[in-house]
Design a protein around this nucleic acid. Structure first.
Lengths: 228, 228
DNA sequence: TTGACCAGCCTTACGTTGTAAGCCACTCTG
DNA sequence: CAGAGTGGCTTACAACGTAAGGCTGGTCAA
């Protein structure tokens, strides 16, 4: 039972709608992972047949696009409430970290975001506001443009980690024969106290590391801005 | 056990092997995209049946893991030939840009890399060498660890772009009603001369923008290293 | 030499997926 | 009241990964 429903006269069913379909898909993904989102499953959850969904979404691709946009909308709802006064850097930083918090509620979302080619209106909106803040903070549009590229997915609060250097410490050591071949990693991992394997966003992207990389970029951008 | 290739009498068929299966999968992906890589298709291409592949790969997941590792191996083959003398920063920079060149030959690879959870031995090797270079260049292991996280997928030569700010310029303007809602983006795009929509790596990640973001990170890391 | 074994191929079949096609029951509108 | 949506449902199909097992030729111990 995924959605709270208004009281209906018994026997009557709440009609489907694009909104309900998308929200149900998000709920399923939150609870069982994105791979559990199938047309039949979404239909089941709504007490309908898979084919009925096609009256509200064009196809599964469209459904996933809608799901992404819904998450992006959730991000915008959060960041629009943030204070935008003061120097650009803490403002942008807080905004990105707030977006990140939303994505932490939908761990499957970064992976989905990354595979969508169609541009979600709310993702575009998000970046528009970001450019506005940068420009208002003294960035030329040219530098703001570079900034968007440089931040990449970090602008929305996640980063792509291809391989988790901390996994060897927490999830058991590397396979022995591989460990012998990677002395620098072994040395690094034995020295790094990676004692907070807490909230990660997919690819060993814990909060501290995310903020480190983000600040590296923001500091660098500010230096480019002031021409120092 | 890798058997040397036997001289075949004409009409006889080259036997399958994990190596051949993986190389064929890479070839199919290069030519028709990663979604064209199905067990049946790989089998066809080898003149064999889909089920025969299972004698050489455990399942499709294993096949894709192998494909990723093959690409990573190709990267290692290239970067191992690079000069590693001199200051760390240009050495690492050149190495990452060389890795990028390999990925540009396999445009589907970044997307695949991003979805694999199992760690590829060659990806691990690549990062080991990178850590070695950083440490040799004056990084503490702790800072090197942060550096890996900060670079993320950029260490291997690509970046995750969720939305292409240049697409509006090259692929026709945004939908009109959306354009009206994003004044900052419109202003930015009208000012930015985005005249080289050439070699991109998936998500509007052209060479200039990639290098801009990379240098931002490398400069920042060097500053952290020297404690300035 | 012979017989057991087995690696490496093939065939058949099943469950799951997205979705095309079409039926039917409403509710509007002319 | 006729006709046209609108929004459900049923049926059916092709493509996918892969389980199960058959055939065949080569290897090797007895």
């Amino acid at each position: 039972m995924v959605t709270a429903e208004p009281a209906l006269t018994p026997g009557q069913r709440l009609p489907l709608s694009r909104e309900r379909v998308l929200r149900t898909a998000v709920a399923i993904a939150d609870e069982h992972g994105i791979e559990a989102v199938t047309m039949r499953r979404v239909g089941d959850e709504l007490g309908a047949e898979a084919m009925s969904l096609y009256h509200h979404v064009a196809n599964k691709n469209d459904l996933l696009d809608g799901v992404v946009d819904l998450v992006a909308q959730e991000i915008n709802d959060v960041v629009d409430g943030l204070d935008t006064s003061g120097p650009w850097q803490p403002v942008v930083r807080a905004r990105i970290l707030a977006a990140r918090q939303v994505l932490l509620r939908h761990r499957w979302a970064p992976g989905l975001l990354a595979t969508r080619s169609a541009l979600s209106p709310h993702v575009v909106l998000y970046h528009d506001r970001l450019v506005g803040l940068l420009h208002g903070g003294g960035f030329s549009y040219d530098l703001a443009h570079h900034a968007l590229h440089a931040l990449g997915s970090r602008a929305l609060g996640f980063s792509q980690e291809l391989f988790d250097p901390g996994a060897g410490a927490s999830a058991g050591p590397l396979p022995a024969e591989l460990a012998a071949a990677v002395p620098s990693l072994v040395a690094m991992l034995s020295e790094v106290a990676h004692d907070d394997p807490g909230a990660t966003l997919g690819w060993c992207d814990d909060q501290t590391e995310f903020e480190f990389g983000l600040d590296l970029l923001l500091d660098g951008l500010d230096r480019r801005r002031t021409g120092s």
